[in-house]
């Protein structure tokens, strides 16, 4: 067996002792056996497979959710991998019920699997209780589902983060669910590659006075700012909202309005930069 060190035949030399010492020092590092499955903690008390899943989630396009005065807006950007892809296809926002939806970042097929589970939960709940599921309950169930995948050796944690938005009895709700299964309720949140930039931008907003229409502009602005400089990548931005205008159903923001806000956001950023 090539991969096993046979300790019996290893001589106790200074050289070997030093090697052993260095091994012990680094024993919590990657490739030391603690990251082979999510059933094992490393000596620091973390589960590497979960940490890696977080990394996978953070490497996807930025996603943002904003709770506004008059409703709720979620949005995300995704890389357009080829010129030949049909425009507006492969959206990263998914409906779950008529007034709950989610935007996904990270490994998209993982996200789709979670969304499909969320839809199942929602229909099952409606069938059982004769009442639509609330987003608080749904977020909890989806988080539990994702958490399950961090517990078994034969499973791989989901490499995706999910921002879920819904309206429970007229109250807007916003949740961010992470690969670890942890989920929190937010006024505003961001995940994906540019989440740091987005979060600092969110801090500058007055969320209690922000309207959904303004939020569309700000989401575009944050997404442009969070993009890495000098990269000529193609992006598409999806934004959906829920407010009285949409009967409190989650629907995509009208394309003309979205494009107008994108142009405005880009122009404003350009003039800000010229002003500096």
């Amino acid at each position: 067996m090539l991969f096993f060190i046979n300790f019996d035949t290893q001589r106790v030399t200074l050289d070997n002792l030093i090697r052993e010492f260095i091994f012990l020092l680094n024993m919590s590092g990657a490739g030391t056996g603690y990251d082979l499955s999510s059933t094992t903690y490393n000596p620091e008390g973390k589960v590497y497979q979960v940490e890696y899943a977080m990394k996978a989630a953070e490497s996807g396009g930025s996603i943002i959710g904003l709770k506004c005065k008059d409703g709720i807006v979620i949005g995300g950007e995704r890389n357009v991998l080829s010129k030949m892809l049909v425009q507006h296809s492969n959206k990263c926002i998914f409906g779950i019920t008529k007034n709950i939806g989610a935007v996904v970042t990270g490994v998209i097929p993982d996200g789709k699997a979670v969304i499909s589970r969320a839809r199942q939960e929602a229909t099952q709940y409606a069938e059982f209780y004769g009442k639509d599921i609330g987003s608080t309950v749904l977020a909890d169930r989806v988080a539990q589902y994702m958490y399950l995948f961090t517990l078994y050796g034969g499973l791989r944690p989901f490499g995706c983060s999910i921002i879920m938005a819904g309206i429970d009895d007229g109250t807007p709700k916003l949740f961010l669910i992470e690969p670890s299964g942890a989920y929190f309720e937010y006024f505003a949140c961001a995940s994906g590659k540019g989440n740091q930039v987005c979060k600092t931008e969110i801090d500058k907003l007055n969320l209690s006075e922000l309207t959904c229409r303004e939020a569309v502009y700000h989401i575009h602005k944050m997404l442009v700012k969070s993009r890495e400089e000098g990269q000529e990548k193609r992006y598409e931005v999806d934004i959906s909202w829920m407010n009285s205008e949409t009967n409190f159903f989650l629907v995509p923001v009208p394309v003309e309005f979205k494009d107008e806000m994108e142009r405005k956001a880009k122009d404003d950023i350009e003039s800000e930069e010229r002003g500096d």
């Binding site: 409906g95 779950i96 019920t97 008529k98 839809r119 229909t123 409606a126 069938e127 159903f249 995509p252």
Partner: peptide
């Protein structure tokens, strides 16, 4: 009604 509304929602969330 339940079955048809379930279908309707399934269709609606395709956006």
């Amino acid at each position: 009604i339940r079955l048809l509304r379930e279908k309707e929602q399934e269709d609606f969330i395709q956006h």
